[in-house]
Design a protein around this nucleic acid. Sequence first.
RNA 1: CGGAGCGUAGCGCAGCCUGGUAGCGCGUUUGUUUCGGGUACAAAAGGUCGAGGGUUCGAAUCCCUCCGCUCCGACCA
Length: 568
Amino acid sequence: MKWSKALIQTLRESPQDAEIESHKLLVRASLVRKVAGGLYAYLPLGMRVLKKIQQIVREEMDRAGAQETVLPIMQPAELWQTTGRWETMGPNMFKLKDRAQRDVALAPTAEEEVTDVVKGMVNSYRQLPVIVYQINWKFRDETRPRFGLMRSKEFLMKDAYSFDVDAEGLEKSYWTMYEAYTRVFARCGLKAVPVQADGGDMGDSLTHEFHVLADAGEDGIAFCPRCGYAANLEKAERQPNRRAGVECPVVGKVATPNAKTIEEISAFMGETPDKFVKTLVYVADGKPVLVCVAGDRDVNEIKLKHFLGAKTVELAPPAIVEEVTGAPVGFAGPVKPAKAVQIVADLDLEGAADVIVGANQADAHLKHVDLKRDAQVGAYADLTIVKAGDVCTRCGEKMTIKRGIEVGQVFKLGTKYSGAFKAAYKTAELKEETMLMGCYGIGISRTLQAIIEQSHDKDGIVWPASVAPYQVVIDLLDPSVPEAAAVAGKLESELEAAGVDAIVDDREERPGVKFKDADLIGFPVRVVVGMKGLANGGVEVKRRADDKSRMKVVPPASAVEAIKEMLK
RNA sequence: CGGAGCGUAGCGCAGCCUGGUAGCGCGUUUGUUUCGGGUACAAAAGGUCGAGGGUUCGAAUCCCUCCGCUCCGACCA
C-alpha cells in the first residue's frame, strides 16, 4: 500500500470529546471517525485491525469446534415476546416497525434468535452438542455512550451459543469456550484476566468475565494476591468483620441536629464511621425493606436483590422512607421503625453491640444499641461491596481492587431460553428433554480499543504484531529519488510475498512528519529507506517499541529476514 | 432520567460580558524554500456562527423555545 493513496488523516490535536487515551489515539491515528454520539465510522486503518481481530476470533472458534453463522440483525418482536424480554430489555433495545406495522428490533444480542433456529434443526441427542457463533453488529440504545468504542450504540460482537444434552455437556462446552477466549486474547497481545461475575438477568450463576486491567475500565474487580481469587465487585465476597461480644449499656438517645450522613454524624459525635450502623430503605418488588450495613460500608444492590429473591431493587423515594421510618430521610434505624417491615443486615453486624443507629425520628440517633437485644433483624447476609483491604474468604489474605475493561464473557444459561422456546431433543430412550445452553460473547470493537488502552506510549499506539493495521511501515524518505523508490518498492513486494503486510510512506513530506505519524499509528516495525543509509549500502530496521539505539542497519536483500525476526 | 458545561471552516479554539464588514492555529491547494524527528515564507480555497422565533436601524453577541454533543450521577445482555 502506498501511503500517498491511502485514506489516512492523522491529527495533531485530540478531539475535544475524547477523555481517555485510547479514544484520543483511535481518532488521532485515523482509525475511526465519529459520525454521531456513540456511532463511529471505521476508517481503512481501523477496519484492518478489526478484520485481524475477527480473524483470530474466527480461527479460535473454529478450532474449538464452533460453527460460524450469521443471524439477522433485524429481529421480529415475537422472538423477544416469547421470553418476555421485549418488555424487560425496555429502552435499551432499538425498536421499529416495518410498513405492515410489525414490530422489529435491532439485535442487542441473539439468544432468542439462535434458540429458535437451532430448535427447528435439532431433534435428536445425536446432533448434540452443537456450538454456533456469529460476528455481527449489535445495537443498544445506551443511556450514555462513552469513551469512543468502549460503550457505543452500535458495536461489533462475536456471540456464540452452545447446546448440550446435560449439565456435564454444558460444563464441557463452557470450559472449551473459556479456553478459546484465553487463546483469543493472548493472540491479540492482550493481558486479559478471567474474573468471576454475576450472571445478571442472563442465566444461572456460573459466569466469568475477561477483563483487561486499565484505570479507564468501567468495572471494579477484587483480587486476592495469595490465592488468585478474582471477582467483579458486583459479585466479590469477603470475610465479614464481626465485632461481637462488646459490653452494651442501655440505649440512649442523642440529639443530632441536621446530621444526616454518616460523615456528618461521625464528625458531630467524634466517633469513627464503623461505630455506626447505616440503615437504608429499599423497595424490593414494591415492598419496603430496611437494610443495615456498617457505617463505613456500601450496599451491593445486586447481592441484596439475589438475597431477597427480588426482580427489582431500588432505593426508596423520600415519601416511602418517611412512611416506613416515621422520620425524614437521614434518620432511619432498625430500632422500632414506624412501620413493621422486613429488616436485613450485613454479616458484619451479626452480634454487633454498642453501635449508633438512626432513631427513626428527626434530628436524633440512638447510641448503645445492641442489634440482637434492641432490633428485629430478620436475617443476616453478605450485602456489601468489597473494598480494598477486605479479607479473602478463601485464604484470609487482604484483597486489592483494580479496574478493568470487560472484553468478553462466558455464561451458563441452562434452560432459560431453551425452556421458553421449548427447544427439546429426543433421548436414546425416546424421551423429550430440554437442551442446556451457554452463551459466550466477545466485544470485537471494544477489544480493539482495549488493546490501545493497554498498549500505547507518549508518542502513540504500540500495536502487537498480530493485530497491527500494517505490520511494517517503510519510510521512503526521498520518494523523488528513483533508486530509493525502487528499493522501497522491491522490499514491499518481497514482504508481500513473505506474507507480511506493509505500507510505504511515499509522501512528499519531511522525515520528521513521517516518523511522527509512524509512531502515532504504531506500526510494529519501521524500515527507513534513506539516502544516508543507502550510501552505506543498507536500510534501517527497528521495532516500534525500541528506542533508536536498537536500530539495525541491513542490506536491502536481507531486510525481509530481519523484519520477520523482529515481528516474532 | 437528574445535575453541570459546550455548540463559530475538516480538526482545535478566540470573538459574546460592552450589538456595528467573522478571526487565529492545524489541516487542504499553488509556488518558492528546507530536507534524518511535526521547516520557513507567500498566496488561495473553505463558515446560512446548531435550528427556529423575538428585541433592534443592525444580532455570532441580548431574550425565548427547541435540537445536538460532552462530563458527573442513576442505569447497563
